[in-house]
């Protein structure tokens, strides 16, 4: 399952950060998105826009394409 499969308000644990873009992966790690972390989907923008997720009480906006390369369970 990937992050974008979650519905609004659902929580899951990050299994793998399969993000291709190295800089983006770094940034996500800096923000605390890493293996073993609980993430919660807070909102999704329309027309395939970014999703808003919460990690450690911190809200982060990222694009659907990248969110779909974050595997969760």
């Amino acid at each position: 399952m990937v992050l974008t499969d979650l519905h609004k308000g659902e929580t899951a644990v990050v299994v793998r950060l399969a993000v291709e873009h190295e800089a983006l992966k770094q940034r996500l790690l800096h923000l605390g998105v890493k293996e073993g972390k609980m993430v919660r989907v807070k909102a999704a923008m329309p027309f395939g826009g970014p999703v808003m997720v919460e990690v450690d009480g911190q809200a982060i906006g990222l694009r659907r394409k990248e969110a779909s390369s974050i595997e969760v369970k």
């Binding site: 940034r27 970014p50 911190q58 809200a59 982060i60 906006g61 990222l62 694009r63 990248e66």
Partner: peptide, 11 residues
């Protein structure tokens, strides 16, 4: 050229 977006949303 690829584009990327990730942003912190402060309280």
């Amino acid at each position: 050229e690829s584009s990327l977006f990730v942003i912190e949303l402060p309280p």
